[in-house]
Structure formats: structure tokens, C-alpha cells
Amino acid sequence: MAGIGGAETTGKKVGWGVLNAVVVIYALFPVLWIVSLSFKSSATLADGNFIPREWSLENYQNIFSTSEFTRALINSIGIALIATAIAVVFGTMAAYAIARLDFPGKSLLVGVSLLIAMFPQVSLVSPLFEIERSLGLFDTWPGLILPYITFALPLAIYTLSAFFREIPWELEKAAKMDGATPGQAFRRVIAPLAAPGVFTTAILVFIFCWNDFLFAISLTSTEQSRTVPVALSFFTGSSQFEDPAGSIAAAAVVITIPIILFVLFFQRRIVAGLTSGAVKG
């Protein structure tokens, strides 16, 4: 950690190599363990070995043979995609207004979204449970999509307005000089420039929706709208005597793959998005 501006000696490189290795092991250990567990056969599942003694795909075949998991996967993907799409559209509109336009009530909107970002979500669970029951939204897709949009919006607004401030102002002015209305300037000039920021925001919002457990377990009760994290916690073995650990591990790996792919491909953007939204504001 020390060594500011020193020469890049071999000793230092080795030191960094060791530090890097520690970090990588730290980050990957629990992930590798659940992957290993998912490939163990039922006979060797409980042997406590870090690396499977017998590799098998049995657990994956099990989870895809029941509707319990496949249905939850469809719910998770559908709910997260719809919530992400709506939150990003609303967030883009609001962030554009915040970054570019002058209107009364702007700082209030920023304040409200900050409040919601800090909000204890469990405080909403009790009233939403009752409200959604009386509106017939309980245990439906919209019943989950609504709170997801709400809690994703502050994230989307902060990240996007930070991105939007980086966009060159002059281009919009030039468009207006050429006779474009503010609306046209938004659609034709700024939107294409903002696309990378919007995309980054979409990834962050998707990860948030994909991750949620509290709303999903409180506002659903059947397979109809249960998402994967919740379905996981309800997994039982195919018989009372079978350990569901193998199925849980396999399902866990399946829902982790998309996230790891996102992270690997869009590492730079995710880092930029997370830090711009929270620090520069």
C-alpha cells in the first residue's frame, strides 16, 4: 500500500501480485464453493470437501425438471426487465430535467429521491402488504414492479444526472439555434450522447431488482410471482430425506451467471456509474 511513486522494482511487483491474489481469492472463495457444491453428486454432497470428488449435472437436471424453479426464473427475468425499463425511462426524463433545465421544485425532487434511497424498505412492507391485498396487486408482477421502480429511481436519477452533466452543453444549444424545440434537442441530440450512461444505469438497476429479497418474499405467496431468490429459500429436496443443498446451489449458480457476465463485460462502466452517482452527485 505504501510506495508512492517509487520505481517499479521486481520486488514491488511480486508484492502487488501477492496482494492481488489475496483480493481475488477473497472475492471468489464463496462463489467457487457454491459452484463446487452445485456439481457434487447426491452421494458426495455432504462430504465437506471444497472440490467435488465426483462431478455430476444431477442438481441442474433436478431444478430444471420442476416448474418451481423455471417459473421463478421467468418471474425474475420478466419483473426485473420491466422494472428496469420503466425506471430507466422515468429516471432519464427526470435526470435530464435536473441536469439541464431550470424549474422550481428541482432541489425538492433531488431531496425526495435522496430520502427514498436511504429509506428503510421494511417500513414500506407492512402498509404495502395491506394496500396491495386490497387492490388485488398482492402476489402479482405489478405488485413487485412498483416498489422496484420506486427504489431504483433514486439510483437511476443520481447516476444519470451525473452522466448528463458530462455531456457538452453547446451541442444542445446549437440544436436549439437550428430551430429545435427543447423536446427535440432532448430526443435528437442528447439522448444518443447519453446512451452509455443510460446503459450503465440499466445494469445497476437490473442488479438491484434481480437482488431484491425483502419485497419479493413479503409481497408474493405463490409460484405465480415468486422470484428466484425467494424460490431458493423455499426449496426442499424431492423427498423429505433429501438435502436441498444441491438444488439450491445449482439454482444459485444459474442466477449468478448473468450478473458475473455483466460485471466482466461492463466492469469499467459499473465502477463509473456507482461512484459518479454516489460521490459527485
Binding site: 492481488n20 457454491i34 429459500s233 456507482l274
Partner: peptide, 26 residues
């Protein structure tokens, strides 16, 4: 980091991205 900065940054994002329930089960 003098070496391997990209690898470190990418791998540290994995705990952030992973579903909390999945990590908890692990």
C-alpha cells in the same frame, strides 16, 4: 496497484453483483 489492476477491480465487483441470498446460502 502496479500490476493487475483490471483483474482486481473486476473480481471485487463480483461480491457486489452477486445476489445476497445466493452468497448467504454459500
Amino acid at each position: 496497484a502496479l500490476v493487475g489492476r483490471g483483474i482486481v477491480r473486476t473480481t471485487t465487483l463480483i461480491p457486489y453483483g452477486i445476489v445476497t441470498v445466493v452468497a448467504a446460502f454459500s
